[in-house]
Design a protein around this nucleic acid. Sequence first.
DNA 1: CCCGTACTACGATGGCTATCGTACGAGCCA
DNA 2: TGGCTCGTACGATAGCCATCGTAGTACGGG
Lengths: 117, 117
Amino acid sequence: MQNPTSRSLEHPGRDAIRLEGVLHALSDPLRLEVVRELAAADCEQSCSVFELPVSKSTTTHHFRVLRENGVIRQIYRGTAKMNSLRRDDLDALFPGLLDSVLTAAARQAGRLAAAGG
Amino acid sequence: MQNPTSRSLEHPGRDAIRLEGVLHALSDPLRLEVVRELAAADCEQSCSVFELPVSKSTTTHHFRVLRENGVIRQIYRGTAKMNSLRRDDLDALFPGLLDSVLTAAARQAGRLAAAGG
DNA sequence: CCCGTACTACGATGGCTATCGTACGAGCCA
DNA sequence: TGGCTCGTACGATAGCCATCGTAGTACGGG
């Protein structure tokens, strides 16, 4: 169906990224956690380094949602699929949004950890 | 006690507001538009001032989603139901989040208007 | 006391979404 | 080549969600 050497993935162009889509992608706890880890790592991460409490199929699904909504970039490197945040595009389109979401997520995680024990 | 009528509405306390819920509430185009108008008005607005392209039942549904996720405050004043942003709570929990979302929405609206003609 | 306005509750419906298991494809390595 | 790992595709399923129409409730005014 396509050239073996050029396994590529569809990404929305910067102009096709919609705020509603980004917010929707971030509104799932699992995906928000993935985004937080990607932001913390600040380099490409393979899908398999994320230990999500769901099956592989579901993991694939969540990464696709993030990619199709313009939140992450995905590239194949051998058998691995590397993920990175589209921080440049998001910051250009929606200045401060990603940072405030990440800050908010960190604060909430801290609050919940303190409350839950 | 601002209780003009006996009818009251359930609101989550500040500590019960969750980032995922707020992002979910804002990820719907209609609800995002409502929030933008509420932020622009900066005072209580009745449900009926919003001319949404959906039925009244659906309008009620969207306002409830915003309220149950802690984005807006609703109180009855006679037959009208007044809506206002919970800006104080949101800013305290997630500093900068609401502003960056509103800015992003305004920018995107401008971009889309310029592109669409 | 009745009526009109504003909003709600309920039931239905179609579509999306999160989840899974199984079967498969692409690349690496011995 | 054969097997191993990583990830995908597909089909199924259950739950949520946006939407509607209709019928109903609450409140203020005549």
